[in-house]
């Protein structure tokens, strides 16, 4: 009689059964990885802008302070995007005929704002505030990365809820002296553990429990 099942059939059957069991687990795993991947969080994606404004050139090259352009970052929730006049305070004299800057000159002449495309954009149900983070001594580069090297702006942090919470549960390693907030090359010193703990105390930073409450960010 012809054998229907050859000797390896048992193994094949087991493998098939096992993969049926594993498939949903793997699929969930894959979905989870994708969901938190840079692809899904728009991390490191640059946006097309009306003028190819370069932070590398203006911050890295010319050493202009963030506050020259992002004026409200210390005082308000919104960091501020510079109006056309701010560009023109230099470009009325500097690179005045560059075609690259034509939209800026046109914007000034017509009194119509430049329309920049947002790079960072939290969902509308999340409340974020720059003033509190700056006042408590968190530097721009902790959340925005090496801005002084960016030819076009990109989002260097995932901006997921997990990312916010990682810090809210333990902000000490990221706390800087106030004068280092705008220093784009700041690295924690060797004794950051001691300094960080002292800053937590001095700046009366809320407890991890309080800072993880839903209503802090979803209000």
């Amino acid at each position: 009689m012809v054998q229907i099942f050859h000797p390896g059939a048992d193994t094949v059957a087991r493998v098939i059964l096992a993969s049926i069991g594993a498939a949903p687990v793997l699929a969930v795993g894959l979905a989870y990885t994708l969901w938190r991947s840079p692809y899904a969080t728009a991390q490191d994606v640059t946006r097309e802008q009306p003028v190819p404004f370069s932070h590398e050139h203006h911050v890295g090259g010319l050493g202009i302070d963030c506050r020259y352009c992002h004026t409200s970052v210390e005082k308000a929730a919104f960091a501020g995007i510079p109006p056309t006049e701010t560009c023109m305070s230099c470009h009325s004299q500097e690179w005045t005929n560059a075609p690259m800057l034509a939209p800026v000159r046109q914007s000034l002449a017509e009194g119509r704002p430049l329309i920049w495309n947002r790079v960072h954009n939290l969902p509308a149900y999340v409340y974020f505030n720059h003033a509190v983070h700056v006042a408590k001594g968190l530097g721009c580069s902790t959340c925005h990365g090496p801005v002084q090297t960016m030819k076009l702006m990109r989002q260097s942090a995932p901006l997921t809820m997990g990312w916010c919470l990682d810090c809210h549960r333990d902000p000490a390693p990221n706390l800087r002296p106030h004068e280092a907030v705008f220093d784009m090359t700041w690295k924690p010193p060797a004794d950051q553990a001691v300094i960080g703990a002292r800053f937590m105390e001095e700046r009366s930073i809320k407890s991890p429990e309080r800072l993880s409450e839903c209503s802090i960010c979803h209000r």
Binding site: F78, P123, A124, Y125
Partner: peptide, 14 residues
């Protein structure tokens, strides 16, 4: 339905 985008104006928005 995620409510990522809600019916309100963003700062400096359109």
């Amino acid at each position: 339905q995620s409510m990522r985008v809600q019916n309100r104006y963003e700062v400096y928005g359109k």
